[in-house]
């Protein structure tokens, strides 16, 4: 095919037309996918909250509270059934071995840990990823415990009553730290019955 001659006008016109067509098309797609994208992001959040909290029928995100603990600010989401507080979910994180470990922790109103969901982690496969329930029993140690009388720290450090994942002490420490932070936020947040 013959090459088209280039001069200033046709170069400018071509580039303008191409970019204009592109932005129009993308604007259209953006509008089209806006709703599904928001739905997907919301679903991701609600899924975790539904798992860690007991039954609720309010909108935990609508009642979200931000609590400062040390240098960080944590999001806490109260769950209520017929305006009686059933539990509180706290989003927390701590730096682990490969990066931040992000957890969502469900507490019962008295501060007992109900369930923990790992939202994001970059720990080593086969070692640090044992923080996942599907991979080991490590997270079960926390369920049903109240940090008031259950010291969150790794046993072999002499810091608490948690048995670390073998060969992943750093990960285990980070996990404990994140749970502790969540508990502190819960105490500070003072969420009461309405």
């Amino acid at each position: 095919m013959a090459k088209k001659e280039s001069n200033f006008t046709n170069m400018l016109a071509t580039l303008l037309i191409v970019t204009f067509a592109s932005s129009a098309a993308l604007g259209f797609i953006y509008e089209l996918t806006k709703k599904p994208i928001e739905d997907a992001l919301l679903y991701k959040k609600t899924l975790a909250v539904q798992i860690v909290l007991p039954e609720f029928n309010n909108d935990p995100f609508g009642e979200a509270k931000r609590v400062a603990v040390g240098k960080d600010t944590l999001n806490i989401y109260p769950g209520r059934k017929d305006s009686v507080l059933t539990g509180v979910a706290v989003e927390t994180s701590a730096p682990g071995y490969g990066g931040d470990i992000r957890l969502l922790i469900g507490f019962l109103p008295d501060g007992t840990i109900r369930e923990v969901a790992v939202l994001e982690h970059k720990e080593t496969a086969g070692l640090g990823d044992k923080i996942l329930k599907s991979k080991s029993d490590f997270p079960l140690q926390f369920e049903g415990k109240n940090p008031d009388n259950f010291k969150l720290g790794v046993r072999k450090d002499g810091a608490g009553e948690v048995d670390a994942i073998s060969a992943s002490t750093i990960t285990s420490r980070a996990y404990c730290k994140a749970v502790q932070k969540a508990y502190d936020a819960l105490k500070k947040g003072e969420i009461e019955n309405e």
Partner: peptide, 8 residues
Amino acid sequence: GIPFMQTV
């Protein structure tokens, strides 16, 4: 208001 043009 066009962050969707980021890649382009």
